[in-house]
Amino acid sequence: MMLSTMVEKAKGFWQDEEGLGTLEMILIIAVLITVVLLFRKEIVDLIQALFDTAGEKTQEVFE
Results as ranks from 00 to 15, higher is better:
residue 20 L to M: 15
residue 55 G to N: 05
residue 42 E to H: 06
residue 36 V to C: 13
residue 11 K to M: 11
residue 16 D to R: 07
residue 26 I to H: 14
residue 12 G to W: 08
residue 18 E to F: 14
residue 17 E to C: 01
residue 40 R to G: 00
residue 2 M to F: 08
residue 31 V to M: 09
residue 53 T to H: 03
residue 17 E to V: 10
residue 58 T to C: 04
residue 51 F to I: 00
residue 17 E to R: 15
residue 46 L to N: 02
residue 61 V to A: 06
residue 6 M to C: 05
residue 16 D to E: 06
residue 51 F to D: 05
residue 62 F to P: 00
residue 58 T to N: 12
residue 10 A to F: 11
residue 9 K to C: 03
residue 4 S to L: 08
residue 19 G to C: 08
residue 30 A to R: 15
residue 17 E to S: 12
residue 8 E to G: 02
residue 29 I to A: 12
residue 57 K to T: 12
residue 18 E to C: 12
residue 51 F to E: 07
residue 32 L to P: 07
residue 52 D to G: 02
residue 16 D to V: 04
residue 61 V to D: 01
residue 10 A to H: 03
residue 22 T to N: 12
residue 13 F to G: 04
residue 13 F to L: 10
residue 2 M to C: 05
residue 54 A to E: 11
residue 39 F to A: 05
residue 8 E to W: 02
residue 4 S to R: 15
residue 45 D to T: 12
residue 43 I to S: 04
residue 44 V to G: 01
residue 10 A to D: 06
residue 56 E to Y: 05
residue 46 L to T: 02
residue 5 T to R: 14
residue 36 V to P: 03
residue 3 L to Q: 05
residue 33 I to S: 08
residue 35 V to N: 06
residue 14 W to T: 01
residue 16 D to K: 13
residue 21 G to V: 10
residue 44 V to M: 09
residue 23 L to R: 15
residue 57 K to V: 10
residue 6 M to P: 00
residue 1 M to H: 13
residue 27 L to V: 09
residue 48 Q to M: 05
residue 7 V to R: 15
residue 33 I to Y: 14
residue 46 L to V: 00
residue 44 V to Q: 06
residue 9 K to N: 10
residue 11 K to W: 02
residue 27 L to D: 12
residue 23 L to S: 13
residue 38 L to W: 11
residue 9 K to E: 07
residue 57 K to N: 10
residue 10 A to W: 10
residue 4 S to K: 04
residue 27 L to E: 13
residue 48 Q to P: 01
residue 6 M to G: 04
residue 59 Q to W: 03
residue 11 K to T: 02
residue 46 L to D: 01
residue 36 V to K: 14
residue 52 D to V: 01
residue 18 E to L: 12
residue 20 L to E: 15
residue 19 G to T: 09
residue 39 F to Q: 06
residue 36 V to S: 12
residue 58 T to F: 11
residue 28 I to W: 04
residue 22 T to F: 12
residue 1 M to S: 14
residue 42 E to G: 07
residue 31 V to R: 07
residue 26 I to G: 07
residue 8 E to M: 03
residue 34 T to L: 04
residue 41 K to R: 14
residue 60 E to A: 05
residue 45 D to Y: 07
residue 5 T to E: 08
residue 12 G to H: 13
residue 7 V to I: 13
residue 48 Q to S: 13
residue 51 F to P: 02
residue 44 V to R: 07
residue 63 E to Y: 10
residue 49 A to V: 00
residue 24 E to N: 15
residue 10 A to N: 06
residue 56 E to M: 07
residue 5 T to F: 09
residue 48 Q to Y: 01
residue 63 E to L: 11
residue 40 R to D: 00
residue 55 G to Q: 09
residue 41 K to F: 06
residue 12 G to Y: 10
residue 45 D to S: 07
residue 46 L to C: 00
residue 2 M to S: 12
residue 30 A to L: 15
